[in-house]
Design a protein around this nucleic acid. Structure first.
Lengths: 96, 96
DNA sequence: GTAAACAAGTTTATATTATAAACCAAATTT
DNA sequence: AAATTTGGTTTATAATATAAACTTGTTTAC
């Protein structure tokens, strides 16, 4: 009845990050931080987890002289995100 | 941009319980356990939390000679659930 | 009638997770 | 050149979810 929710996506911040990345091709650390309102530390950790899971890729470069970490959703990430959304809807349909 | 998600509802099992209760007036422990596939321990703990939050009420009685714990969603619970669903949709709309 | 198995939970312990705090290096501003 | 800001990472702590163990009482099988 209730499908298992991917624990990697069932996290407020990681879900927000994925939601952003689902719509923008790529986004850098600062942008993600601003949009989510997360602390740097938290964001850093969650980005690591999404990277390890293969849901996003991270490219480290420079914007001018400043370091710039750019994140991008992978096909696997897209798939996981879509599945998560589908699964979640089962929980939200009240049936009432 | 991303509204805060009620942590009490952003939990797989608690959300499943609330989802069930949103559709059925009331449900007993065994039914919830069966429908969610949760272990008794986990279910017991999560029901406690929902009760403490005022999202559900619990009535302990007997069905024949067997103890029977019946759960019911409160108006506050209904409101919280609706708000959660609304908030969550912000996360799922990809914008892509 | 009593021993074994089962039902319905609760309590407690453990493992995982999220979050925040502290830190670091380089760049910029004053 | 000292102070501040940017862009993060690492580490520590707090919260959470989950599982394991236990309790109380009830059937069922001998």
């Amino acid at each position: 009845m209730f499908p298992k929710l991917d624990p990697l996506l069932h996290s407020e911040l990681r879900l927000a990050v994925m939601s952003i990345l689902a719509g923008v091709d790529e986004a850098d650390f600062s942008y993600l931080k601003k949009q989510t309102g997360a602390t740097s530390g938290n964001l850093s950790v969650q980005i690591d987890k999404l990277t390890t899971a293969g849901y996003i890729t991270v490219e480290k470069g420079f914007k001018g002289k400043m370091p710039c970490t750019t994140c991008k959703m992978t096909p696997a990430g897209r798939e996981a995100f879509d599945s998560y959304v589908t699964a979640l809807k089962e929980y939200l349909a009240t049936g009432a």
